[in-house]
Design a protein around this nucleic acid. Structure first.
Length: 813
RNA sequence: GCGGGCGUGAUGGAAUGGUAGACAUAUCGGACUUAAAAUCCGAAGGGCUUACGCCCGUGUGGGUUCGAGUCCCACCGCCCGCACCA
């Protein structure tokens, strides 16, 4: 049982409480069912916030991080989670990251890691590399300077080598949400296309384009290459206008979202290429700011008639627009809207070089690829959108990449006996940039190969690396190797993983890659290649926002405890309050509730009960003060019920024992199903209902005692403290936590009679009580005799009668 | 922009294609109390009707079906991700 481990920000958040409570419910439930459950906890402890804190307040990332961990551990323990704290570790422990370095070296040897040049955000004032989130509107967050792109040689994991397997294996992940599998499938983005070399008219070689729509070749009216394509770079020196444009492109925001939203711009290079299938036709080559060097070949052909983006580009720069096909029977040239039918729809190709007439685009594509291959015009290619994983970070607070740069031997892996390559403690954060780079002695090491003076790599690893194998480390957290074979085989895989949907792609995909890489390097069995057998993605905890405005009309936010919600005023000043509906909790909006305060006020069980009730776990839950209060009251009611039953006359006869037992077995069944299917909110609703039934019951002491003890058991995964108290109060044996989970008696779940609704034309008009085992014909007869039906029929015969035994009767008149 | 998801009373939400609104909050009424709080009991989607009952109703507009909150198509709104935040 594993929940995504937290980043040690210093305070636990109500979202953590929800996440870990859900995991704890499953863990405790499984323990009660006799499973040996491993339920560990650790800390995703490397990353930028620690460096930012050091820069802001002068401390050290290490001290900041470990003191945050101590604080958060202290806040989590009172929740009563069934966590094995003996296995706890932080990814910034040298014992952990040293093993990560060993893994890296093994992956390097296995050919899963390589170096290549890649672009980073460069802040020319702070002289430092910026993360995407540190670039705001193209400017550095701290300096405000225009961010530039800079090419650096960086380390990459060859995740693309495993693209096919990562895609195919998604089918086997039956207990993952379909949406997550779909997102990963789209992210990997397998496509069949073709590489087409276009010959330059100046005789200076060819430009190779990748296309998934070669069937539209007739409509190809321009080529666009990436700003950092070799063709662009070659022209940069001689063409100031191109150089200026390329320079402008380099200042663009690099994120895919920003690229897609940005205005499509281009510039003509003056180069012309020959159209591959129409002799004599020439096509201009442009540089486009929307072409990515990382994808395909960094060059595309534009077909304005059948791609809206290309069409907008063509209209803007007055390029030719030419249809490759029409819709059958509608021979209309494209105007302002591109003609983009779905690939299965039949289209009419216009004098197609491979002789295709009317057919679907999909068949057109296949036929074109065949034709191109036969005539030596291009080569069919399977392409993945998935790019290799760049892991180099030019930062201090991360796992050092264990290699050494030697002038004679080149890039040399550190020897395993020298691991861990530890971060130096004597660093300062008073000036921006990577302290490892400017450390006086840390970089200077002898070459592991020749022994001559050499330099350590100063890049550290992406923190996603840390979280890509921690689940495996939990099986043997103190081992002298990354994993211990026997332990990994015994515990892997993770039977249930729980975390936020925001990790649907990157973290989960990287973890799947790492598990495979760890198998290749002998650290995990083949059976652990898919590390997470079942995945559940939970929603956020939200809260209303309380806002007033200052004299300039700017919003001012208030903490929930500082306002009087009923009177809609700020407590201290009496100012009128604006209540903004629920939003994700954030410090800046002050719509946060502190779990520590909740636990102090109501106790851990109330906090646990509340975060599980009301909302389905995969959806967001809104924290409301009245909801927490209600949870608290309910737990109080259960306790007084326990008290009352304890004080009952043991011998007095009761009535309705059987009804109470039936309700109890129904509740056992429903709650068990609820937990099994992650319907915690539904399970809690059933517990509310059963509590009400028990409260009203006049049954004898023995039945009531059995009912309250079963109730305690069913509640124990959610509210372990209260459940133990009830168990002890009723004289239960041992701990409720170790008592076997109750099993519903099937015989007690079956009712003798059922109430069936009668619909007339699909609308409910009445109901009948019938014996549960009555056959269709008899039910129909009874239904047709029903007053509502005879009234509706008014003497005529029904057109149709649908009887679903035990469910519904529908009479069509 | 692209990929994925969500949308149901005043509110959070329930509902294997089969009685829409379980359970809970807020509200209102009642009991208890000198009173209040706490607690307990009860009412309640909207509209029309003395009543029996009828009409409307799950973001909007279409479709499939005996029957749609649920399946399909289009649109609107919100949320997540977009590769250096974790």
């Amino acid at each position: 049982m594993l929940e995504m481990f937290p980043y040690p920000s210093g305070r636990i958040h109500i979202g953590h409480v929800r996440n870990y409570t859900m995991g704890d419910v499953v863990a405790r439930y499984k323990i009660s069912n006799g499973f040996n459950v491993l339920h560990p906890m650790g800390w995703d402890a490397f990353g930028m916030p620690a460096e930012n804190a050091a820069m802001a307040s002068g401390g050290h990332p290490k001290e900041w991080t470990y003191s945050n961990i101590a604080d958060m551990r202290g806040q989590m323990k009172p929740l009563g989670l069934s966590i094995d704290w003996s296995r706890e570790f932080a990814t910034c422990d040298p014992e952990y990251y040293g093993q990560q370095q060993a893994l890296f070296l093994d992956m390097l040897e296995a050919g899963l890691v390589y170096r290549k040049s890649a672009v980073v955000n460069w802040d020319p004032v702070d002289m430092t590399v910026l993360a995407n989130e540190q670039v705001i509107d193209g400017k550095g967050w701290r300096s405000g300077a225009d961010v530039e792109k800079r090419e650096l040689t960086q380390w990459f994991f060859k995740i693309s080598d495993m693209a096919e397997d990562l895609l195919d294996s998604l089918d086997g992940l039956e207990n993952w949400p379909a949406k997550v599998r779909l997102m990963q499938e789209n992210w990997i983005g397998k496509s069949r296309g073709i590489e087409i070399p276009f010959e330059r008219t100046d005789g200076d070689g060819k430009i190779v384009c990748y296309s998934t729509r070669p069937d539209t070749m007739r409509g190809a009216t321009f080529l666009a290459v990436a700003p950092d394509h070799p063709v662009s770079k070659a022209l940069e020196a001689s063409r100031p206008d191109l150089a200026a444009f390329i320079d402008e492109c380099r200042k663009m925001d690099t994120t895919e979202a920003a690229m897609e939203k940005a205005e499509k711009k281009g510039i003509d290079t003056g180069i012309r290429v020959k159209h591959p299938t129409e002799s004599g036709k020439e096509i201009p080559v442009w540089i486009g700011n929307f072409v990515l060097m990382d994808y395909g070949t960094g060059a595309v052909f534009g077909c304005p008639a059948h791609d809206q983006r290309d069409l907008d580009f063509a209209r803007k720069y007055d390029l030719e627009v030419r249809n490759a096909f029409y819709m059958p029977g509608q021979e209309v040239e494209v105007g302002t809207e591109a003609l983009v039918p779905v690939k299965t729809e039949t289209v009419a190709y216009i004098d197609h070089f491979a002789g295709i007439g009317e057919t679907s685009s999909q068949q057109g594509i296949d036929a074109t690829i065949d034709y191109f291959e036969e005539h030596g015009l291009g080569q069919g290619q399977t392409q993945y959108r998935l790019r290799d994983w760049g892991l180099s970070r030019q930062r201090y607070w991360g796992c050092p990449i264990p290699v050494v740069h030697c002038d004679t031997c080149g890039v040399v892996p550190e020897k395993k006996e020298n691991l861990p390559v530890e971060l130096p403690d004597d660093v300062s954060f008073d000036i921006p940039g990577n302290p490892l780079d400017r450390h006086p002695s840390w970089r200077q090491v002898p070459c592991p190969k020749c022994g001559n003076a050499a330099r350590r790599e100063t890049d550290t690893m992406d923190t996603f690396v840390d979280s890509s194998w921690y689940y495996a480390r939990f099986t043997a957290p103190r081992a002298e190797t990354p994993t211990e074979k026997a332990d990994a085989e015994y515990w892997m895989n993770v039977d249930q993983y729980i975390g936020g949907i925001e990790h649907a792609i990157l973290h989960l995909l990287y973890s799947r890659f790492f598990a495979r890489a760890m198998h290749v390097t002998g650290h995990l069995p083949k059976s652990a290649s898919e590390p997470f057998k079942a995945l559940f993605t939970q929603g956020m905890v939200t809260h209303e926002i309380y806002q007033t405005r200052d004299d300039k009309g700017r919003p001012v936010y208030h903490l929930p405890e500082d306002v009087d919600r009923a009177a809609k005023v700020v407590k201290a000043t009496g100012e009128a309050l604006e209540i903004i509906p629920s939003a994700k909790m954030s410090k800046s909006k002050k719509n946060v509730v502190d779990p520590v305060t909740i636990i102090e006020t109501y106790g851990a069980d109330t906090a646990r009960w509340f975060v599980l009730s009301d909302s389905p776990p995969e959806r967001d839950v809104e924290w409301t003060a009245s909801g927490a209060e209600a949870a608290y009251k309910h737990l109080g009611r259960v306790w007084s019920l326990c008290d009352r039953i304890g004080a009952m006359d043991k011998d007095a006869a009761g009535q309705g024992d059987d009804d109470l037992m039936r309700a109890m077995h129904r509740c056992i069944h429903d709650v068990t199903m609820g937990i099994e299917s992650f319907g915690f909110n539904a399970a809690i609703a059933k517990l509310y209902a059963f509590t009400a039934t028990l409260q009203k019951s006049k049954a004898g002491h023995a039945a009531q005692r059995q009912a309250i003890m079963t109730l305690a058991q069913l509640m124990s995964p959610m509210t372990p403290h209260l459940a133990e108290d009830i168990w002890a109060h009723q004289g239960g044996e041992g701990f409720v936590a170790s008592a076997p989970w109750p099993v519903a008696d099937e015989a007690m779940l079956v009712d003798d009679t059922v109430t069936m609704p009668i619909q007339i034309n699909g609308k409910r008009r009445g109901e009948i009580d019938v014996a549960a085992d009555l056959d269709k014909g008899a039910i129909e007869e009874l239904a047709l005799a029903h007053e509502a039906v005879t009234r509706a029929l008014n003497g005529s015969t029904p057109k149709k009668v649908i009887v679903v035994p035990g469910r519904i009767i529908n009479v069509v008149v």
